[in-house]
Design a protein around this nucleic acid. Structure first.
Lengths: 199, 199
DNA sequence: TCTGTTTTGTCCATATGTGTATAAAACGAA
DNA sequence: TTCGTTTTATACACATATGGACAAAACAGA
């Protein structure tokens, strides 16, 4: 029978995720995270393997609590534009009420990475963003098929603009902390794109 | 008579700026930059003082060659919307043709910083972004006074949306490398905001 | 040649950080 | 109690990085 672990692995991933979100990936060294978790480096290596492996888990944990996770749920009975609008509102609220103004873990780490090409973590982050853009395009395509948007809508362009809006808000929120301005930013852009819907 | 310096200080600031842009601020240690410049750490300290001081100079050097510097020039004889549109086009082109897809130094460093509050560098970056947003609002106000935009335009909201677009493009360009998609993103948003003008 | 000044070079004392190897500890089952 | 397995603890050999102190070098002027 193996010796039991002193710490809860799932809680540890959560704690690591919070630390990476706060301090950035480079500053979240094996030593730093081990200390944060109150474990030795041996335990870190035994539990997670590598920094990259832990990051992947932390990223998944981050997305699992992210305001935009609802975009990946079943949208059969939900008006798309209302969903997008409320999601943007939640994103703005979430960023505005973060005392540390951390922005978005994924965007932060993407900007933090030096040369993202060929780097496994950089590739993972890029893939996440492109996946998100593709999902937005799917949703807009559904909106068109339901008549929520005009048939001639350039769903690809609108999806890119929407994804860019989300990314921008996350970075902008590190400079603009007040919720009203963040929401005004999002709302103005949504209205301009014809994607705003309050109900 | 003092011993002359072995290296050109202005060139050194340029080189440091490029390195910080490529590798990020945290990775641009005194040791790393000194090696990049081919000087000893003593020389670094003698020439620049602190990492923070060098960063300030590097940031100024970065803005001096940034596509959006033209927004701070005299706009007496320039249609504002045309200026904004061509500036966004230049930003997209600039990001797309960077082989390293570095995005924007200022946005990268802002996202890289852990807790930006109370940190001199973080404050400087935040200030830069807020200054940029204020300048955009000025320009939009001029556009309204000239009749380029309707009198009832919410220049504050539009300026925030525009600033957010610029920030977003810089981060998005680390994932989307092709110029056409970047420009489509910008153009779609500009058109939506009523700020697009090709001539 | 000496002087004053600045720059470069080197050393010092610390601090952070890495992956690996290995022994000790902790557990349930036999 | 012994055994097998996993976890924790510790050591090893390196590596990166810092600011400061101080001596040597490089220069023009006197």
């Amino acid at each position: 029978m193996a010796r039991p672990s002193n710490f809860d692995r799932d809680n540890a991933v959560q704690t690591a995720m919070q630390e990476i979100w706060s301090a950035g990936f480079d500053a979240s060294s094996v030593k730093a995270i081990s200390e944060k978790l109150g474990i030795t480096r041996s335990s870190y290596y035994n539990a997670f393997g590598t920094r990259e492996a832990l990051f992947k888990e932390a990223l998944a944990a981050y997305f699992a609590q992210s305001p935009d996770r609802i975009l990946y749920t079943d949208v059969s009975n939900v008006p798309i534009l209302t969903l997008l609008t409320s999601t943007l509102r939640d994103i703005c609220a979430s960023r505005a009420q973060d005392p540390e103004a951390r922005g978005c873990l994924a965007v932060n780490c993407l900007c933090e990475k030096a040369d993202t090409k060929g780097d496994p973590i950089g590739d993972l982050l890029i893939d996440s963003i492109l996946t998100s853009a593709a999902r937005l395009e799917e949703l807009l395509t559904i909106a068109v098929s339901r008549g929520e948007l005009p048939a001639e809508t350039d769903v690809h362009g609108k999806a890119l603009a929407l994804q860019n809006l989300i990314i921008g808000i996350s970075a902008f929120s590190k400079a603009v902390h007040n919720k009203a301005d963040l929401w005004l930013t999002a709302r103005t852009t949504l209205e301009g794109l014809g994607l705003y819907s309050e109900e």
